[in-house]
Amino acid sequence: MSETPLVEFKDLVVRFKGDRTVHAINGLNLNLKPGEMLGLLGESGSGKSVTLKTLLRLLPPKRTDLEGSVKVLGTDVMSLSGRALAKYRGGDVSMVFQEPALALDPVYTIGDQIAEAVMRHKGISKLAAMDVALDMLTRVRIPSPERRLKNYPHEMSGGMRQRAMIALALACRPKLLLADEPTTALDATVQIQILLLLRELQKEFGMGVIFVTHDIGVAVEVSDRIAVMYAGNIVETGKTRDVIKNPRHPYTRGLLAANLHGAVKGSRLDAIPGSPPPLEEAPSNCSFAPRCSLARPECWKALPPRIDIGNGHEAACVLAAEAAVTA
């Protein structure tokens, strides 16, 4: 690939120190092309949110050990500090959170909050920034945007607040948007509206998006590519279609079965037994082996290899190379 990747994680390791050590991310490698929408899929504790927070340097530095490198458009994120970091956060990369009611400031109007970000990053007057805010509210399809500019977050419904949050995140035209479960707190009929909105805006602005979710259906709905995380690493990645139609890692297959899409009523579900491992020690073998029905002796001996299945589809499993793994 000649193109500079938008995001490049290389052997990222994140450890939290304290009363007990948590190995949150264990040697993660991931690339994102400009304008690509990546769905980062995983269960709680798999390291999805930590990955996003590393990208924005939001982890507490005193309690966190970081190894490896994170680059955004060739710039080493770890080396940023002071003004460069402030410019990077919100300017080049911004984030949408799960709970907009908590992420927005309750004592400022929506218009003021958007305008503040634009004034900081673009250095324009309040008046001009308010015009940008109005334009953004229109783009996220908030009805009667002039009136909504003067609203406080509590005066809006959940779906409306999430739209306002997206408007705020995109106001400075970031090249990369990080979305951390942005629709999990919303009702089903509102969730689909926000997903479709994000998909449209991503095309319109041509930005890269990392969309973190635990819901496989949501990931399929929005992403070009999917990366499945388990115990602090990516176990499978590939084009959405390839991962969904031809999953190679046993964990991905288990997740698809657990989604119950098309499950026969009353039939026994093919559930993955047990629960995710505690991350107190760095893994020295396949983290999924204790729950895997196909585990072999070599799975317990060493970390699984990353096997390239072609077309950018990779799985970290010794069995992935075999074409006819029983589904």
Partner: peptide, 22 residues
Amino acid sequence: FAAMPSMDPDNRTEEPPLAGDP
């Protein structure tokens, strides 16, 4: 039901079935 994710990358939802919040 139309608001449920389709689970089919070749046949994604194009139009939200309802506008606004409850």
